[in-house]
């Protein structure tokens, strides 16, 4: 096969693999910029995947599935907020706890409702987000270079993929061009100042968490009823943590978040492609290197070798109004 065709194939699969990361990393962006660490992204992704698969199966409607995914993810966000904002609990502990609850609850309920060892039933075609062929994709296919790129990478994705990329400029706009965004960033750096200006720190952080749940809901839905056709045990498989790594790798900024997610998605796709193949002179490269690479890169970044990753200043610190 032609090298270009291989490259196009990997690129297409890289995009498909980076979409859940992108939604989740953007979700984390909002909570972390508001000063709430969210280790629980993984759990939110998982519960929303489960909820969307159930709803899509019962209603046969993909959009209702998405709704269910979003609602449940926001509910988990509220729990996180209740623990870490209202009760000023440790945000890391709360996130870890919710990840456990999500991992256990999805299997327990899945087994009780569907009896397939934690899987949900197969979602019918109407309950899924299926690939959209953009106009002219077939006609373009014959054009050199641009043709396959358009037909196989840009076209042929489902609607959630396009929404994911749309969310990047929207997130940027919300964070940097609206009053809400300005305050949200301020509350992550110096909540005392925001409080002094007469704005409720708690409510602002809750709203940030609602946005987080909203975006995480898309991520889970994508996993369950766009990428596959059912919920499978632990189907997020650490993607929430990779998204967290991408968020840090991108230094908590929306457009770099997209690039980091695409990079990590590409690594994943490349690892799949390389499985069992050998490179001349080097020999077979173990896939585990590609699996570990996102984390290694993030640690190298955190060590300060590729610029400095400076997290929001007030991140992880519960805000106490007065004593």
């Amino acid at each position: 096969m032609d090298y270009f065709d291989i490259f196009i194939g990997i690129l297409g699969s890289a995009i498909r693999l980076s979409i859940p990361l992108l939604f989740t990393a953007l979700a984390g962006l909002f909570s972390e910029r508001a000063g709430i660490f969210d280790i629980g992204l993984e759990g939110k992704m998982l519960v929303s995947a489960f909820a969307s698969a159930c709803a899509a199966y019962w209603t046969g409607n993909a959009w209702l599935g998405l709704m269910a995914g979003i609602v449940v993810a926001i509910a988990f966000s509220f729990l996180h907020g209740f623990a870490s904002i209202t009760n000023r609990g440790n945000q890391i502990v709360s996130g870890v706890a919710l990840n456990f609850v999500a991992a256990g609850l999805t299997i327990v309920l899945g087994q009780a409702w569907f009896g397939q060892g934690g899987r949900t039933a197969q979602v019918p075609g109407s309950g899924r987000f299926t690939p959209i062929i953009l106009p002219g994709a077939d006609a373009m296919r014959e054009v050199p270079i641009l043709g396959p790129l358009y037909a196989n990478v840009i076209s042929g994705n489902n609607i959630l993929t396009y929404i994911a990329f749309l969310m990047v400029p929207i997130s940027w706009w919300v964070l940097y061009r609206t009053r809400f965004g300005l305050r949200l960033r301020a509350v992550g750096e110096n909540p005392g100042a925001v409080d002094t200006a007469g704005i409720s720190v708690s409510w602002l952080r809750y709203r940030a968490l609602i946005v987080t749940g909203f975006l995480a809901g898309f991520a889970g839905t994508y996993l369950a009823i766009a990428q596959s056709a059912a919920f499978i045990n632990n189907m997020s498989a650490g993607k929430g943590y990779i998204a967290l790594a991408a968020l840090i790798f991108a230094k908590w900024k929306p457009v770099p978040v997209m690039l980091a997610c695409l990079l990590f998605g590409f690594l994943d796709a490349f690892a799949n492609f390389m499985q069992g193949k050998s490179i001349p002179l080097i020999g077979e490269v173990p896939v585990q290197i590609f699996q570990a690479l996102p984390y290694i890169l993030t640690c190298v970044l955190l060590a300060g070798f590729i610029g400095i990753a400076r997290p929001p200043k007030a991140g992880g610190v519960p805000y106490t109004k007065e004593r």
Partner: peptide, 15 residues
């Protein structure tokens, strides 16, 4: 067990 474990961490830790 995982659910119980999560709830224990939630109530004994975060809350």
């Amino acid at each position: 067990i995982v659910v119980i474990q999560g709830l224990v961490i939630l109530f004994a830790g975060a809350l």
